[in-house]
Structures are given as structure tokens and as C-alpha cells.
């Protein structure tokens, strides 16, 4: 049962992720954003299968909820008509395709020769376990992220405030 669910969610993630960047039917950015929601939802499903319930919930609340709403705001505020009509040069498409194909072939070659089973990390998805890890083992990176967020806030205010003086 779990295996079947894994394949369903994984396939959904891949298909929707592809449709975010390259939808053959429409170039509408709102459609892309909606497919991004679906991608994130199916990734949340994968997290549930890993018994990481907290991460799954955060994935839905933060990404599918807050971040996508922000994306949609930006899309609607900006006028993207020009972007929609723009044609990509053939050479760019071709070189991008070659790079993607090369990357895919290297990855497939790597997959064929998987190392022997290492002991995977113990699955503990409870909020308490995650909090313990964050505040004990990963305390230093966690606190550094707070400096990162402070910088990001200061930077965003500086770059986006209306009056420079």
C-alpha cells in the first residue's frame, strides 16, 4: 500500500513540477502557480509517507498557503502580458535541452549503481523530535538562519521602500 502511494505521489510531483515550468497548453503564470500548489501538495504526501507529519503540515501551511498566495499577488500586480507573448530563441531551447539531457543521463547512470543499503536515519517525524534536533544538534545553523532572516528583512525594506530619502 505504501509503495503504491509513494509511486502515485512521486509521479504527481514530477508531472506537476514539469507543468509548472513547461506547460504545453498555456503560458499563463497563474496556471503555473496553481500547478506549483499541486506539486507542493504531493510533496507533502511524500513527507507523510516518511512519517514526517510536522514537515508535511508545514509544507501545506507555509508553501501551499502563504508563499503561493504571495506569488499570486506578485503575478497579478505585475503586468505579464509581454512575458506571455515572448518567444524563446531556438538556440536557448536547444542548449537547455542538451544540458537537461546530459544531466539526466548522468543521473540515470548513477542510479544504476546504488551502494549497498546504509542504515537510514531513524524515522521520527513528531514535532517534539524535530524540535529537539533543531535546538540541540542543529542549534548553531538554526541561530545563523536568524541572522540571515534579519539581513533579508533589512535588505527588502531598503530595496523596496518608496522614498529613497
Amino acid at each position: 500500500m505504501q509503495d503504491v502511494l509513494f509511486y502515485i505521489f512521486a509521479a504527481l510531483t514530477l508531472v506537476c513540477g514539469f507543468l509548472v515550468v513547461a506547460n504545453p497548453f498555456t503560458r499563463n503564470p497563474v496556471t503555473s502557480a496553481m500547478f506549483l500548489v499541486l506539486t507542493i501538495m504531493s510533496m507533502a504526501g511524500l513527507f507523510v509517507l516518511l512519517e514526517a507529519f510536522f514537515l508535511a503540515a508545514v509544507q501545506v501551511l507555509v508553501y501551499a498557503g502563504a508563499v503561493i498566495v504571495l506569488f499570486l499577488f506578485v503575478i497579478m500586480v505585475l503586468d505579464l502580458q509581454v512575458e506571455e507573448r515572448r518567444k524563446y530563441p531556438r538556440s536557448a531551447m536547444l542548449s537547455g535541452g542538451i544540458v537537461a539531457a546530459a544531466l539526466l543521463s548522468v543521473m540515470l547512470a548513477a542510479m544504476r549503481e546504488l551502494p549497498g543499503t546504509t542504515d537510514g536515519p531513524a524515522l521520527e517525524g513528531s514535532t517534539a523530535a524535530l524540535g529537539g534536533l533543531l535546538f540541540r544538534h542543529y542549534l548553531l545553523p538554526f541561530e545563523m538562519v536568524s541572522v540571515l532572516l534579519l539581513t533579508a528583512m533589512v535588505g527588502v525594506i531598503l530595496l523596496s521602500k518608496r522614498k529613497l530619502k
Binding site: M144, L148, G155, L159
Partner: peptide, 24 residues
Amino acid sequence: FTLLFVSIELVAVCFYVLVSFQRQ
């Protein structure tokens, strides 16, 4: 790798701001 990633991202975020500082 955790510290590697976080420190490199901290540097990167700072530089995103510093590079575009003369926004006029």
C-alpha cells in the same frame, strides 16, 4: 554540510542586497 549551506546562504543573501544597493 549543514553549516556549509547555511553560511554560504548567509553570505549570498547579504550579497544579493549589497549588489543591488544603488537601486537608482
